[in-house]
Write a protein that binds this DNA or RNA. Structure first.
Lengths: 201, 201
DNA sequence: GTCTATATACAGATAGAC
DNA sequence: GTCTATCTGTATATAGAC
């Protein structure tokens, strides 16, 4: 059973799209096979179970996330790195409005059944938080970096949920402008303030 | 077909518990019937379809939410009212760690399939945001109230997701302390600042 | 109003020809 | 390696006796 094939890749790609759009449980192997243009019976040559497809999808999301984080690292300041993360959310806000955050959606859905898939999804979320924490430490936030990182990621995730719930990409766009203010006023100056909207007074 | 019965109430109560814990799609009518101690075939006397149970669950959640909001209103300042909301999340943080936010979970899962159920769930989220907006307006935040309300609710929802993802109630407890600082420093003074962690400098 | 038995549909998974 | 046909389990939903 080859680890990498054209068909295998097509199946993973199809699964990523469909699972993001419909969720893991609502997506059938028949859906995935059809989207990938692979006969249903052939799916089992590449993946022993549906759960194995889930694992491959999470692996792929993990590679994407780490690539993105590497790109964001190229910004010259911690505040700009964190904003690059938010900017990516803005760039994909229409997908998010349609289908939600691919990582948040997996965590939400899979946390309910536990097991290794849930753990793998949780690791994605943890990686995002740790990366954010690293930036905040670099900005001089010290011991509060972990708590601020939790809140920063929570805020992005929550805004993805609202964007999806109301099918309104602008929610993410407007949010990015507020968080820009927060980054300039607090993170860029080595302070930490709970981030909702920049000060108006 | 009676609108209110002992058995009907038991079915809704069972559905609320199971749907929160397992999600809507993973929860079967057989699960609900068993938990409510009602024979499976009898379920259909009270609810025409599974979707009808979903509607009843959302209605019940809506009633609960509006009761809670009425209670929070009894606090004497807008900042304290908003904190009462967060305090309730802390009080239920162990349930959230186990099963996530009942409203956020519904929105996340149901947004993926659209339809009237998704709309009903979205209305719950909207009610939370509008209530928060009202408090922020009362605090004197003016035109930025809506955006700050979006971020406030997003932050609570995102923190619920992290709490559930990592099965760690303390995440919500620690967050509540930070948001307390944000409420005192900004909302209580009629300012608005994106809320991640109180200032440390 | 209540409950057993069952129809119907479709999911994940397998067997085995090619 | 590939694909058709099919097994098996289980979900929603219904029929109909009581």
């Amino acid at each position: 059973m080859p680890r990498t094939t054209d068909k295998r890749d097509r199946l993973i790609k199809a699964a990523k799209i469909l699972i993001r759009k419909q969720g893991f449980h609502l997506t059938t192997l028949a859906d995935i096979a059809q989207e990938a243009d692979v006969p249903l019976g052939n799916v089992y040559y590449y993946f022993k179970t549906k759960e194995a497809i889930g694992e491959a999808v999470i692996e792929s999301r993990s590679r994407e996330l780490h690539e993105s984080m590497a790109n964001w690292e190229e910004q010259s300041t911690p505040a700009e790195r964190l904003f690059a993360f938010v900017q990516q959310e803005v760039d994909h806000s229409e997908d998010t409005a349609r289908s939600g955050c691919p990582i948040g959606g997996l965590c939400q859905e899979l946390a309910k059944q536990g097991g290794t898939l849930a753990d793998a999804a949780a690791k994605l979320m943890n990686d995002m938080i740790e990366w954010s924490e690293k930036q905040l430490k670099a900005a001089g936030l010290g011991d509060s970096s972990r708590e601020v990182a939790n809140q920063f990621v929570a805020l992005v995730q929550g805004m993805s949920l609202l964007t999806n719930t109301f099918k309104e990409p602008k929610l993410m766009v407007n949010f990015s402008q507020s968080i820009r203010g927060w980054l300039d006023k607090t993170v860029a100056k080595g302070k930490a303030a709970t981030p909702i909207a920049e000060e108006i007074a």
